[in-house]
Amino acid sequence: MNRDDVRVCVLTLEGTNCEDETVHAFASLGANPEKVHLNQLVRDPPGRHRALEDYQALVLPGGFSSGDYVRAGAIWASRLRSGLRRDLRAFVEEGKPVVGICNGFQALVELGFLPGLGGETDVPQASLATNDSAHYECRPSLLRYENRGRCGPLALLPRDGILQAPSAHTEGKFTVPQGEEEAVWGALLEADQLLFRYVDPEGTYAGYPWNPNGSLYNIAGVCNPEGNVLGLMPHPERSLSRYLHPDWTRSGEEGYGDGRLFFDSILTYVTEAF
């Protein structure tokens, strides 16, 4: 399909706040994104109803959905589970990309879609727990892309390439059940579900502040075993333009920034697959 035919559903809920930047990212690359409130998919507001099946990609953007009450992403996950579970499962089974950024990643983990080891689960398999610093971390992050090919939507990203994207979260520490850390790590590697890891400018797996939250094995993003549901804590839509990079005034470089490839790759995948 042509790129301008690619309909991207950028899902909103009270408290999401990165939908405009996310829509802009897809629109600037020639796709046809739309902000869609969850209620437009699960209820039938006159003239405003939308069907998830009409879209080729679904993005859960960043923010503080439902005030992050209970836990970050937990209420969003419950609302998806109660109202959209069947549509969402069909969407995923078709191989369409589902992308969670920051709060959206938290929601996909709470939903049991990520990491989805051994399939989707009713209770979460992981947690994006409170940062080790106990506060909101807003800083540039460097992400090494380590997927070996499982993740179709990000296939354009070079293996071991570094992508710069800002982190902005309080709950981003990728955590798995105690005592199962090595087993989960091994399973993620074996199924090629690892996407991004935090590194320092030398490319090594550094601690704070390069790992802004204390994440297990510096994990910043993962995908499901099929590779079409993916999530990451940092915000690639916030490095879409070169002028959003922290060194822009010194570099003098113009045009797109590191984030472009993230969105470009998703769109390329969709145009080739559907």
Partner: peptide
């Protein structure tokens, strides 16, 4: 508790 109030992982 299992479905919303707690995350059994942590």
């Amino acid at each position: 508790c299992r479905r919303l109030l707690a995350n059994p992982v942590i």
